[in-house]
Write a protein that binds this DNA or RNA. Structure first.
Lengths: 161, 161, 161, 161
DNA sequence: TTTT
DNA sequence: TTTT
């Protein structure tokens, strides 16, 4: 049984096109970088902005939809949970990453929306991924994420807890 | 104006007593480490548990209340927003931290509840902090948190965005 | 595809024991009345309390768990969505009801917790409902709920949208 | 102190232009009717849609912003709490209403967005309400809301709990 | 890196 | 009554 609640709700814009990969078992894993901006007045009365860049991960069916319909600039609602990971970088140094594992998504329009797009968290008929990419195959765009974490070879087991 | 929604909702238990410090201006900053556990069945049908340790930060009035009433083991509801920071460690290496900046809190009872306690996000009359601790004063308990970030000297400006 | 987000998050206490019924198809439908209280200071500086009584409905597996483990006084976290219904009362007058259709639940302890209880939103092994109750069977406790709506005969189709 | 959590999160579209009134003390009270639609497959495999119409109320500053920037068709994020009211209709019959008392709002664009609009939950400089309407003054558009509740004369005290 |  |  679960103990506790771990819930994240985001509405923001993508800083880049989604990055979709597939596990050896064929499960889609799509990553996006999502901006939310807040404002406060500092003590001098000036407007101060601060943008957080959230690393959001979509698995499976949701990963396919996200990869197909979201684009740089898209506005999206995401619901999910926080996952903290620890890994050893190529430089041998321990690093930490924070991801939001999405379990619900809804497109909200906004600039960057692809051509025929539409989509949503519950889309009934959607096309299959255009093609399977083996891990490591294809040009892997640089990740703009705040916290870099490697994500190259997936087991099918690499799913959100 | 804010652009986007950045909201976190947690219900979990404290891994340690809260850690309260005060800015030079007297503002309380309380940190807790909050556990949430989820379960899934792996492909062999075994129950697999995974615990996330969230770093939650309370500022000002909420920081005083959290520091006074929460204890190791306490169960608490927290609402806040995600903040990602980047800093240079003492070893000169760039590091990243993720905090949940709380803006609402509610005690839920459970083990670890202090003596007369009570408290809540809106508690009307509460006592002032017992004493000011200069930064760095006192034994700083080891944090069970996933991601270590230093937090020693605060300006009064060091408040959530 | 869904259009929009309709989400409710509650933490509160049950005003009565749960009321579980079963559809002809054997699906459990459990209703609880959940209290949340807020406080504000009125203009005279007096504390003013106000309690909302939420009608929460659990279907299926969650309905069985809720009926088995929740009790009057139990503290519980509920996540769900709002559903507004319109029906004609026995007096021939049109009436309206508002329900929260739960899709997640988590017990938080507190007074009223049953004997061996435990439970949670994801409990793996739980016993089947002790017995089927035909609609109308058994003493139907008075509901403290704000808005009364009849709920006697269910089709198996009477499930949350 | 508050006991419990009572939180609603909505993303939807307005079915009509907002309805703004002012209390005698000059506080804005804006009401909107917000649609969220969900879909499920019935047992015959057909897509079944269901739309909920939420009555959302904005008070004070937020009421002014909502009244000024939202329009029929606008897409909006709303966060608030549930409030159930009971009143006696003009026919002498007791009735019930459910409102979401908003405490955060964010425009999401979409059709129906007014002219120069913009706005958001935190908008720094915004114009004052065009004019004060005494209660009862002006043609009060019919409310499209699901549950009708009278709302004519406000005391300044008529604010969310 | 987004967006308004 | 909205929207996709």
């Amino acid at each position: 049984m679960a103990r506790g609640i771990n819930k994240v709700i985001l509405v923001g814009n993508l800083g880049n096109d989604p990055d979709t990969k597939y596990t050896q078992g064929g499960m889609a894993i799509t990553r996006i970088s999502l901006a939310t901006t807040s404002v406060r007045k500092d003590k001098d009365g000036n407007q101060q902005e601060r943008t957080e860049w959230h690393r959001v991960v979509f698995f499976g069916k949701l990963g396919e939809i996200a990869g197909e319909y979201l684009r740089k600039g898209s506005s999206v609602y995401v619901e999910g949970s926080l996952r903290y990971d620890k890994y050893t970088g190529q430089d041998g140094v321990e690093k930490y990453s924070t991801d939001i594992i999405a379990d619900e998504m809804q497109m909200l329009g906004g600039k960057g929306e692809g051509g025929g797009g539409g989509g949503g968290g519950d889309r009934p008929q959607r096309s299959a991924p255009a093609q399977r990419q083996g891990s490591g195959s294809g040009p892997s765009r640089p990740q703009p994420a705040t916290q870099q974490a490697p994500m190259d070879d997936f087991a099918d087991d690499d799913i959100p807890f």
